[in-house]
């Protein structure tokens, strides 16, 4: 199947979903940032006592706040979270992930089931992994300061 057809037909649940970090609205931002560090995630999902989605807190919010108000990390996360944010369902197609990221200029998407419960996170990295997996050619990656390409040819 062609790559473009894969994007249009594969469901979101075929992406490598990451576990969402859920926090409560009353948690201090410093605690949320520490949890994001531990989970190596760039966003946290804010849920209320009934496990209902109420917001998203991202590293972009940290960037925008910290220069002007470094003390904001003592505030409650509810005071600075984004209350509207994109989400996709497990059975939506992968191209909807692409559309949602582009339309909302976001790198993170919350994945929910039919009941609206959080089932995971996807976004830029998940989409790139999906394309890389289904791209039928080889690509070389290289690091600045990484191992150099051999200057002698290998083999006989």
């Amino acid at each position: 199947m062609a790559l473009i057809d894969k994007l249009r037909t594969a469901p979101v649940k075929e992406l490598h979903l990451r576990s969402a970090l859920c926090v409560e609205p009353n948690q201090k931002i410093s605690a949320v940032i520490e949890a994001m560090r531990q989970a190596n995630l760039g966003c946290a999902i804010v849920v209320d006592g009934e496990n209902k989605l109420v917001g998203m807190f991202t590293e972009g919010i940290v960037r925008d706040q910290i220069a002007a108000n470094p003390g904001f990390i003592e505030d409650r996360v509810a005071e600075h979270m984004a209350s509207t944010f994109p989400r996709v369902k497990l059975d939506d197609t992968v191209d909807l992930v692409l559309d949602a990221m582009h339309a909302n200029n976001t790198r993170f998407l919350c994945v929910v089931d039919d009941d609206g419960c959080v089932r995971g996170l996807t976004g830029q990295k998940g989409l790139m992994e999906f394309i890389a997996e289904h791209y039928p050619r080889q690509v070389m990656v290289q690091y600045v300061g990484g191992p150099k390409l051999p200057d002698q040819r290998e083999g006989a």
Binding site: K125, V139, M140, V141, Y143, G145, G146
Partner: peptide, 29 residues
């Protein structure tokens, strides 16, 4: 982040996507 993964200007666009997929970096110099 020192010594990041990069692509050359004449690399195929696919290289940039693969760098993100492999390294996890979302910005590719």
């Amino acid at each position: 982040t020192a010594d990041p993964v990069y692509v050359n200007e004449d690399d195929a666009a696919a290289a940039a996507l693969h760098v993100i997929a492999v390294s996890g970096h979302r910005h590719v110099p």
